[in-house]
Design a protein around this nucleic acid. Structure first.
Lengths: 221, 221
DNA sequence: AGCTGTTAAATTGTACACAATAATATTGTA
DNA sequence: TACAATATTATTGTGTACAATTTAACAGCT
């Protein structure tokens, strides 16, 4: 029976995003209700909302579960993500002002610092900032929201991602290309660079997930 | 107090999509409750779900309203839609089997028939079928769902769309190009053709909306 | 033992009552 | 009359009780 500062919706979402609630886990109304110190009603509200955004799966009269994204769906989601981020890059290449470019180069150098120190947590953070900035420069707020939604659905898995040092290096090189293409205003090139960048991440993800499910099924047997 | 066959969620969604509930309209819980012959609880469930998908806007303690999409947001949504449908076309060009091509050509000829008779309602229907088919051929189910969501959010406005004869003709020509590019397996060309097709629609929409809001503000004054 | 139909327990769906808050109306004063 | 403070009304948010349905447990049968 904890006191909480934000809404039940946010608290539940946070639990999913941080991995306290793992994919496939059952989301029990009464348990959460007494845990949050509220009745079932607001819990149900949150569950329905999260189900609508895709973070939960809800089956009538059978309860809610944390959405379990299989390798197939994951790959599909990354394909869409690559396309959307590619569009951001196109827009950014077309619209970026001088100060935008400057900010982008600063963000990129921060990524470079993080990569050099080998601090993968910091790189994760700076990388997010880098992509966020491009989305902002893109200027399409609807596109931003759609990407945010997709990111949330992937975040539960991203937590498991490999923190390989070479990935950080190659990622940085890709970022450099993206910065260059945006700087030069070449929409098509920026789009292609960003799409490739995201697609590679997706492939890494897919590999990881394939490994995990293989070891899982092995240990279950 | 009507009896209803589907869920409150679907019924409410239907009212928005068919224009019985216009953008900006207030969605009153008690009114809907007695109208559907149920209590407020299931109505609230539906409202929260629809708000999460973007069809409704919900303000705490102030009620829910049918989402009112301004010209800016509308344009942004169409840009995203163009990108997503473009991706479908790319995928379709890569994956289409011989029978897929055949089905696509049949669907296209049905559009042509509708255009020739000048039946805009029928063309609307056949056009949807044509696009649906391409999405299916694309094979990305996640992408399909995302497009469906977006379509729903636009449908409330699409109802208002011009049924100009020349648009039907040019649309058909664009369809022909799309079919050709998919047939030839040229991903990039299919993508470009589809994006252009959707973008033109979006521009038409924006024009229409601009006119409407102009006359609206004029009549209000 | 394996299967099937019935019964019991657990869990979700709905209704209703009350609490909290925002919107509106009213009244008093300058 | 115009404005401001207050009171009233309406509407949403939450808690709780009960109904409906699914899941499981179990007994009886082949």
């Amino acid at each position: 029976m904890k006191k909480l500062k934000f809404s039940v919706h946010d608290a539940l979402e946070d639990r999913i995003l941080t991995g306290q609630l793992l994919p496939g886990a059952r989301v029990d109304e009464v348990t959460l209700a007494e845990e949050f110190g509220v009745s079932r009603t607001p819990i149900r509200q949150a569950i329905f909302q999260l189900a609508a955004t895709g973070l939960l799966e809800h089956f009538p009269r059978r309860g809610a579960f944390v959405a379990d994204v299989g390798p197939q769906l994951l790959s599909e989601m990354f394909q869409v993500m690559a396309e959307l981020e590619g569009l951001c890059a196109s827009n950014a290449a077309r619209r970026a002002s001088a100060s935008d470019i400057e900010a982008l180069e600063i963000s990129h150098s921060l990524c470079a610092e993080a990569a050099q120190t080998g601090d993968s947590d910091r790189y994760y953070y700076e990388n997010e900032a880098f992509h966020d900035l491009i989305r902002t420069i893109s200027g399409n707020t609807f596109l931003q929201k759609e990407i945010d939604r997709l990111q949330k659905r992937l975040k539960a898995y991203r937590r498991l991602q490999l923190r390989a040092r070479d990935r950080m290096k190659t990622s940085l090189v890709e970022h450099a290309t993206i910065v260059e293409t945006i700087k030069s205003g070449d929409e098509a090139a920026a789009n292609a660079a960003m799409r490739a960048h995201i697609t590679i991440q997706g492939d890494r993800f897919a590999d990881l997930l394939a490994n995990l499910s293989r070891t899982n099924t092995a240990s279950v047997k």
